[in-house]
Design a protein around this nucleic acid. Sequence first.
DNA 1: GTAACTGCAAAATATTTGCATCCTT
DNA 2: AAGGATGCAAATATTTTGCAGTTAC
Lengths: 137, 137
Amino acid sequence: MNEVLQILKKNSLSVTEGRKKILELFIASEGALAHADIEKQTSNNFDRVTVYRTLQTFVEKGIIHQIPTTDNSVLYALCRHNCEQGHHHDNHVHFICSNCDKTICLDDVTVPQVKLPEGFTPLQSAMVVTGICLDCA
Amino acid sequence: MNEVLQILKKNSLSVTEGRKKILELFIASEGALAHADIEKQTSNNFDRVTVYRTLQTFVEKGIIHQIPTTDNSVLYALCRHNCEQGHHHDNHVHFICSNCDKTICLDDVTVPQVKLPEGFTPLQSAMVVTGICLDCA
DNA sequence: GTAACTGCAAAATATTTGCATCCTT
DNA sequence: AAGGATGCAAATATTTTGCAGTTAC
């Protein structure tokens, strides 16, 4: 059984063309995708609304996670490790290339712990590094 | 001369009611503000478009910076240290309280360096920690 | 007086919702 | 067959742009 089917089955989602196609895009892409990217590559096949709803479902199920950005776009990427429904373990660093604008999940770079001031309790950390990526160096 | 005027003068911006009011909001707020927050607190005085343009100007001048979030909102906060036009030094950690939803700049907690894979050159780092804040503990 | 800032109107974009129809299981 | 997923239309929300009038310096 291929990866796409496995993921959908595991999360008890029905297997539909739209979900398969969008999952394939994520698997094919090294990095993260914006809603617009996905829409562009599926517009002949699916409605924009379907893309919205599919992404929302995937986030809820813990299949993809959202990546923080400073502009007002939202980026999504596959959860590679340990994500369960309602409880993301998205503790790797994201890298945004200021040259090619691609966002890359550095799965092997974990977000370091920081010491917070007295009284603050951390639950989750996210880190985004901007710079020049491997391909643009 | 008060702080608001100082900031505007230093960045050679003309002193207008809108800019003064918005800057005051930032200074009064411990944390970060969303466009919607600002609009809510100024809607009797200023047009929504003015808020957009003022925030944009402030970001360009390095007076405020944008904070990455995972939902698709954009948050802004005053740059306390060393920000110059076109070159933000926004290297402190941001804390988002999952209880009260406030975003707080932890100015004294600097973003740690991470070791990136071969070939990646970092230029800037941002870090967002989610958890329970001082007031909600 | 001049350049810059603002408000208003409107365009362009992005997101959400309702409902009828179709597909997966 | 039944529940869930999709497409379409339309309602909302968000952001941008143009231009005329006003304000700061």
